[in-house]
């Protein structure tokens, strides 16, 4: 039996990689990938903790729910990125600073 810690470590690694991608990548798509990674890290944690709910499988249910949500979010996000690209001719988040004060 793989202990919980391993799951959490993998989850944390995934989260850290995702976070890095979100903060450091110069391509919005990859930032989106980073977000997906972070969501997956969370899902992994949900599944891992789901082990302790053998009656309702709440963790797994939530994981499924989150996967669906993530898929929906990606669709929307990709649409936004597409539009951003159309507008700015760039998907580099550094170039999109219209929200600056």
């Amino acid at each position: 039996m793989i202990p919980l810690t391993h799951f959490l470590v993998v989850g944390a690694c995934l989260f850290a990689i995702g976070l890095y991608a979100v903060l450091a990548r110069r391509n919005a798509i990859l930032v989106l990938v980073g977000i997906e990674l972070m969501i997956n890290a969370a899902i992994l944690n949900l599944v891992a903790f789901g082990r302790y709910d053998k009656t309702m499988y709440g963790g797994q249910v939530f994981a499924l729910f989150a996967i669906v949500l993530a898929a929906a979010a990606v669709a929307v996000a990709l649409a936004i990125i597409l539009n951003v690209y159309k507008f700015y001719r760039s998907v580099n988040p550094e170039d999109i600073k219209n929200l600056k004060d």
Binding site: V22, L23, P93, N98, D101
Partner: peptide, 11 residues
């Protein structure tokens, strides 16, 4: 703080 950069907001 209001740089407009999404990533900085995240950070």
């Amino acid at each position: 703080l209001q740089t407009g950069g999404v990533q900085r907001y995240f950070a």
